[in-house]
Write a protein that binds this DNA or RNA. Structure first.
Lengths: 229, 229
DNA sequence: TAGGAAGATATTGCCTGTATATTGCTGCTC
DNA sequence: GAGCAGCAATATACAGGCAATATCTTCCTA
């Protein structure tokens, strides 16, 4: 059914993938920026990225616009695009907001999580503790991401979900930059586990307190990177 | 200084305004959707809006994309665009998040507002009480918007600011739809005034509590529109 | 040599044409 | 009459080009 359009394919464009090129471009760019593959401060242009990623300018432009709203890049009209610098003070302001949303998410997840989600959380924090013991940072990051996805989904609030998604990229990038100097993975795993346990038991107040302790740790981690503690 | 491009001007495009067409299109559309000039459920298309507002398809497309992220419209690929319906349950979930951010903003504003901002807040809530007494809903809405702008600016947190901005459009649209049935303007004015007063005095805990009471009112207002209280 | 004007260069803003996807309609078949 | 195949209509997705504009460079002038 319907002839292939393979003749027009770019390196990785996949028309039958069901995902728009804009979406693909966004994911690719977000990944490269968050993992520091494109370092902070890099100046790029739509044309450069379009050539580099093998997309047209339109998907790249829309992806960049979205990244700009997430503060991962800054678009300067008629000048170019700068990958945002990472700044400790900015990070602390971000955590001010994240603390509130994280607490809300924990509380609502404790109220609303399904049985399957509670079990899933349990498995994830188990994996985190194992990854921390084995000092496997890649696995830890992947599990942290899963943990966030599950709790946010369990909280059943699409607004909190998108607000958190917005903050995650910037938070993860900061972590990528500094975790080698200052991260205490076993402690982080334990704090995650405490939140997860409270959620699993449906203990709302305990979940809130545990969430605050977790963000306390993240905040201390951030401060430690500049010795402001 | 380059010849005029007046020959190509649309009805209201103003190249020398310093504001991009995308920005203009966004503001125009947001205004029309929030004020219900374009009613919920309306099906539109890029082409229709481009013709109607006198912009090209590109600015309209980018504006719609932003509105979709704010959940004011839903874009269905290859199908069309629907102006989102207004839903009480959605509104209550929105308020769950807004309560947390509003409280944070009030607390930080109490800590960080400048002398000028504290005076400005005072003037605004004075005006609100006058507008409520005179039953002037237009003035009340304008002042409410100003109140939010000032407190958010005083909180000195760009992340909280953009999160709030995201929620404001949906909140205001709900208010536009229902204020005639269920709003108690004098009470709303008084509750705003209590938050403002606590901020002006720098009383953080009082500001948090007052903020919660304000959101309690907004939540009750929302519930009252469907008699769920 | 310092300062400034004018052109060169690079980049985004915006437009418009073409490709693609979804849906509803129409007519054929059983 | 019901159901399905195929076609037409219409919408967004994407590409690529031109225009506007911000900066950089060069060269002229005092």
């Amino acid at each position: 059914m319907a002839r292939r359009t393979a003749a027009r394919n770019r390196r990785r464009a996949r028309p039958e993938s069901g995902e728009s090129l804009t979406e693909q471009a966004y994911r690719a760019l977000e990944e490269q920026i968050v993992t520091l593959e494109i370092p902070p401060g890099t100046v790029v242009s739509e044309a450069i990225l379009a050539a580099r990623l093998g997309f047209g300018r339109t998907p790249i432009r829309e992806a960049l616009w979205r990244l700009a709203r997430e503060r991962l890049v800054t678009i300067i009209p008629h000048r170019g695009i700068i990958v945002s610098e990472i700044n400790i003070k900015t990070q602390l302001r971000l955590l001010e907001l994240r603390r509130e949303i994280e607490r809300l998410v924990a509380a609502q997840a404790a109220k609303r999580a399904s049985e399957a989600e509670r079990k899933q959380l349990d498995a994830i924090v188990g994996g985190m503790e194992a990854a921390a013991a084995a000092n496997d940072d890649r696995a830890f990051m992947r599990l942290d991401r899963e943990y966030n996805e599950v709790t946010v989904a369990a909280a059943r609030n699409e607004f909190a979900a998108s607000a958190m998604a917005l903050l995650q990229g910037l938070s993860r990038r900061f972590w990528y930059l500094h975790y080698k100097e200052a991260a205490d993975m076993p402690l982080a795993a334990r704090l995650h586990a405490e939140v997860a346990r409270a959620i699993a038991r449906g203990e709302v107040e305990a979940a809130k307190k545990a969430s605050d302790r977790l963000v306390d740790y993240i905040e201390n981690f951030a401060r430690a990177t500049v010795g402001l503690d």
